[in-house]
Nucleic acid binder design. Structure first.
Lengths: 207, 207
DNA sequence: TTGGTTTACTAAACACTGTTCAGTAAGTTT
DNA sequence: AAACTTACTGAACAGTGTTTAGTAAACCAA
């Protein structure tokens, strides 16, 4: 069955080609200008061809999102390496915010855009979201350790995770969407205020 | 100059007509389906007519945003009436979250959507954002009182405001954009976790 | 009242978007 | 060699925001 194998490989190769072009466009010209037509032009295929490999744009964005979460996950693993759970939580928080501020378009895709939240029907009938669970579970584990070692004031790990996530996401998304302009500060002032807010928060959650 | 006056009135009347139709569509069918063409059809005018009253869609969204912030501001004034600054802060936080969860499309327009962040050039050359400043200043005032009366652990009112805003915005926007699905909870569980997170946060910021 | 100007409005077009479908040409199987 | 399958595309559909040329009515001055 060599031919079927080769066709399978070619199919995957094509998907990879589409994904790579999409990601490059995403990072180079941003979400707004990444259209199916633009991607098709970049890879020198007709727009209709993309629909032979992806059901719709959402499915493509979903795959892009997967890659983006992979990047954030790698950053977590690289930067959040301290022995102390408390310090590791700090490293996670700061890595998250840094990622969001440096890659606003990817952040958009992961946490702001409406589209690509696909639910996966599990064999047992329940539902699951796989995208982002690597990052979320990473956070959850550290928090569990923090609670176990009585370093955090939270009793419930879900509440702790939600609290932390909401804080950093709030900071990043308000800034990315320019809503902090209402505070009437300069760029530097805003960056400083964000840092100060994280530090203050990290102090608050200690026991 | 009666005729000029009447024309002026008619111009404003037309703007009001457009705004009312837009707001109705916004609340009834959501942001996504509120297009210039749909609005025009609703008020029985040509799409081009709308451009005689609004430079572009952004300008229209900006006016809608103004109205939305007015609504939130009214909610603040109505609900945040306690004597105690601390209690008033709690009332603001809960009003904000409730507003966001009950009016997701308006919330979108105010805090998530890219578009309508217009900067106003002031006479003195500086810049300002008027939309949302009523709500933000309302928060700032209460926070100032909280700091003055040594009820809050924050020293800087900007940091305090940013912290609070980020927390509630994080909660609302993650939920509105379905990102909390990754937590694998039921609807009720999520609502409960959000409430618990706010309560925990309000405890944390006390001195 | 007539004639000229200004105003209010619109039909149609432009340049985009995501998506579908009929048709073609090449590759594969019999 | 004929039949079938696969990979791909041109063209269209329905939608978006926006611009422009043209029209008809309203207004103003002589």
């Amino acid at each position: 069955m060599g031919i079927a194998d080769r066709k399978e490989r070619e199919k995957l190769e094509m998907k990879r080609l589409i994904m790579e072009a999409s990601m490059r466009m995403f990072l180079e010209v941003g979400y707004e200008k990444t259209s199916i037509r633009n991607i098709a032009e970049k890879i020198e295929y007709s727009p209709a061809t993309i629909y032979l490999y992806y059901k719709d744009k959402d499915e493509l964005l979903y795959d892009l999102q997967t890659q983006a979460f992979e990047q954030l996950f790698e950053a977590f693993k690289e930067k959040a390496t301290s022995r102390s759970p408390l310090k590791r939580i700090e490293q996670i928080a700061k890595t998250y915010v840094q990622f969001g501020l440096e890659q606003p378009d990817l952040y958009d895709l992961m946490f702001i855009i409406r589209s690509p939240m696909k639910k996966l029907e599990r064999p047992d009938g329940s539902e699951a979201w796989d995208n982002g669970d690597n990052c979320f579970n990473f956070l959850l584990e550290v928090i569990q350790q923090g609670i176990d070692q009585k370093l955090l004031r939270f009793k419930d790990k879900s509440v702790a995770a939600l609290s932390m996530w909401s804080m950093v996401h709030g900071l990043v998304s308000l800034n990315v969407r320019c809503r902090l302009k209402v505070m009437n500060m300069e760029e530097d002032g805003i960056a400083g205020a964000i840092d100060a807010t994280i530090d203050e928060y990290l102090k608050m959650i200690k026991i």
